Amino acid sequence: MKFAIVLLVASIACISAQGPAGNPFAAANPYAAAFNPFLNGVFGGAGTGAAAGVAAPVAPAAPFGGASISSFFQSIVLQREAERLLSQPDFPVDLAERVQEVVATSQEAISGCNNATLPWLQIRCVKPLLTNAKNQLKVIDDEWQARLAATAAPV
């Protein structure tokens, strides 16, 4: 066991002494420093950056296309549902006002979820609010469909 540890330390020292110029893996792979502690200076390696020939670790992309979770759900899910309702031909004004009220009140409620720091907490906060708003929009859509059926039915 001691021999294996000594062999590991010797190989780390050898790799660290070579630096990225002597290590084809580090020179060819820009993500090498992010995933290999021997290359990013933790164990005396050459370090990262353009001077060392190794790219710095890449920051992960923001979830939901760079938007916050609450603004994503407001703009994508809720707005599209409202636009679908409002874009129907001959949609009544009173129902359009109700759709706009639902969207406005739900946006105020959902924007309060930005205070949650972790993304899963934001999703947990937004989900019941979004479900409630979609249910209200569904009730408005059902009422519109009932009105259409009433006008289409023969007297």
Score class of each variant (00 low, 15 high):
E81Y: 14
F64R: 02
E108P: 00
F25W: 08
A146I: 05
P30N: 01
A46I: 05
T48N: 03
E108V: 13
A33D: 14
L85G: 11
Y31S: 04
F25P: 00
L118Y: 15
P37G: 06
Q74W: 01
D94A: 13
P60R: 06
V99S: 01
L86W: 12
P119S: 01
C113W: 01
Q145I: 13
P128R: 14
A50G: 00
A46F: 00
L78S: 12
L129W: 04
R98Q: 13
E81L: 02
L129A: 02
V102S: 04
A21F: 13
L121Y: 11
E108A: 07
L118S: 09
T117L: 07
N115T: 06
L129M: 06
A17R: 06
M1K: 09
I12L: 10
V93I: 13
N36D: 14
P154R: 11
F91N: 13
A50W: 02
P30V: 04
L148K: 04
T151K: 10
L8A: 04
V139R: 03
S87C: 12
T117R: 08
A26Q: 03
L148A: 02
V139F: 05
S70Q: 08
A28L: 09
G44R: 10
L130M: 07
W144I: 10
P119D: 01
V42G: 08
K138G: 07
V93P: 01
F35A: 00
V93C: 05
A104S: 15
F25A: 05
V6E: 04
A62R: 14
N114L: 01
E81A: 15
G65P: 04
A133H: 04
V93E: 12
Q107E: 13
A150F: 06
F72S: 00
V54R: 00
G22D: 13
T117S: 06
G19L: 04
A62K: 14
L8M: 03
N36M: 10
A109C: 09
F38Y: 12
A21N: 13
F73C: 03
R80D: 10
G65A: 07
A153L: 10
L121G: 07
V102A: 09
L129Q: 07
A21S: 14
N132M: 10
C125V: 07
C113A: 03
F43I: 08
A33W: 06
L137R: 01
N115A: 00
V99H: 02
R98L: 06
Y31T: 08
A34I: 13
V99W: 01
A67M: 10
A28G: 08
L7P: 05
G49V: 07
V126W: 00
G45T: 14
F35L: 01
A46E: 08
V103Q: 12
L95A: 11
A67W: 06
Q107C: 05
F25G: 03
L148P: 01
E81M: 12
A26V: 09
S16I: 11
A33F: 07
A21H: 14
A109S: 15
A109Q: 15
I76L: 04
A62H: 09
S75I: 13
A62T: 14
A146P: 00
R124L: 11
L118E: 15
D142M: 04
C113F: 02
I123R: 06
G47S: 05
V42I: 13
P37D: 11
V58S: 04
S71A: 02
A109N: 14
L8S: 03
V99K: 00
